[in-house]
Nucleic acid binder design. Structure first.
Length: 349
DNA sequence: AACTCGGGGCG
DNA sequence: CGCCCAGAGTT
């Protein structure tokens, strides 16, 4: 048996039952693939089910508000995926009459659809022999063939794609693609792979050369930036607060948050907060300010650690651009804000 | 080619 | 604490 037959054989006995595997509807496959980018199946699954229920067709998704789309994405991270998803849904619904592009080359043109996702949709939905190369595939191929080219180098990306393309089963490319990914996720895992019970280990170069622990090779490590956030949590006497939408570049585009004062260092006293530009008028009238969390809340992102203080500001006068507290939960917010809201509510009761 | 974009799970 | 996850877009 060749490589792909061995994998498919394993897959027939070990595949995961996942909701998007019951269909070849490109809308469902597309949705699942976008959600699972850099995301574990276990984390993405509940989001997929909620999306399918809220937006049964690409037309439902296209007609939804950006806020609703992001709200249902809340907590899944990488929010540009949701915005691109929405953009592409509108494009397909309005420009393509709801019909998905039917091949790899055209799928690749869609916003938010890269090499991996175009290959996945083309192979699963349209039986096109386009090989997927995700984190699982990099791991399986680098180990089995003993390839030491860094998987995140230009050379590595090209090399692994070409190799995968030579291995793909041209009759059942979709099954093969999912087989190698499941094999990587369940068997040839990053840590503690199941080499002892592996049915293809006899021809695995990494096992032979004791490289299982070092492959795949990834170059460069990410640098983490520290940031210091102060959120101004307004409470007016008649039940209003204030949220702002994050715009422009940077994290959490399109999500909402309390008015933010970011400083270069942790602030020592409330004075530094009041002196910050932009909120002078806020502190002129009678207000009482209290720090909600005695220790900084540390919220960790891949590239940033956010040291956060939540300042509760009770205020008598009405200020512009306010929303009611009971409307706050309608808005998509970062997990950092959502967790605060949970604690804040708990604290009040 | 290097950076940026989240959040969670695991050892 | 570091690594990884059904990657893609921007600089």
């Amino acid at each position: 048996m060749n490589f792909n037959n061995k994998l498919k054989h394993w897959y027939l006995q070990n595949n995961r039952e996942l909701p998007w595997r019951k269909t070849k509807d490109p809308y469902h496959i597309w949705l699942s693939e976008i959600m699972l980018q850099q995301t574990r199946v276990a984390q993405g699954l509940p989001y997929y089910l909620r999306y399918i229920e809220a937006f049964p067709t690409v037309f439902h998704l296209a007609e939804a508000s950006e806020e609703k789309v992001l709200k249902l994405w809340q907590g899944l991270g990488y929010y540009s995926r949701a915005r691109n998803l929405h953009f592409t849904a509108k494009y397909i619904a309005n420009e393509l009459n709801g019909e998905f592009p039917g091949n790899y080359k055209d799928l690749l043109k869609l916003k938010g659809v890269g090499d991996y996702t175009a290959s996945a949709i083309a192979s699963i939905c349209f039986n096109e022999a386009a090989a997927v190369v995700d984190g699982n595939v990099y791991r399986v191929l680098s180990r089995y063939f003993g390839i030491e080219t860094p998987i995140n180098s230009t050379k590595g990306i090209k090399e692994f794609k070409e190799l995968a393309q030579t291995l793909i089963d041209t009759k059942e490319p979709g099954v093969y693609n999912q087989a190698i990914m499941d094999f990587g996720a369940l068997h040839c895992k990053p840590q503690k792979p199941l080499c002892d019970e592996c049915h293809i280990s006899s021809s695995c170069v990494a096992l032979e050369k004791d490289l299982v622990g070092t492959l795949p090779i990834k170059e460069k490590k990410i640098k983490v930036r520290k940031r210091y956030f102060n959120y101004l949590v307004l409470k007016t006497a008649n039940g209003y607060t204030m949220l702002n939408e994050r715009k422009g570049k940077g994290i959490w585009q399109g999500l909402y948050e309390f008015p933010l004062v970011e400083t270069q260092k942790p602030i020592e006293s409330v004075k530094e907060l009041i002196n910050d530009k932009g909120f002078e008028d806020l502190f002129q009238s009678d207000v009482s300010i209290s720090l909600f969390n005695t220790k900084d809340v540390v919220h960790k992102l891949s590239h940033q650690h956010l040291y956060t203080k939540f300042w509760v500001i009770e205020i008598e006068k009405h200020i512009k651009a306010t929303i009611k507290w009971n409307e706050v939960e309608e808005y998509p917010v970062p997990v950092l804000i959502d967790k605060f809201l949970t604690n804040f509510k708990k604290d009040k009761i």
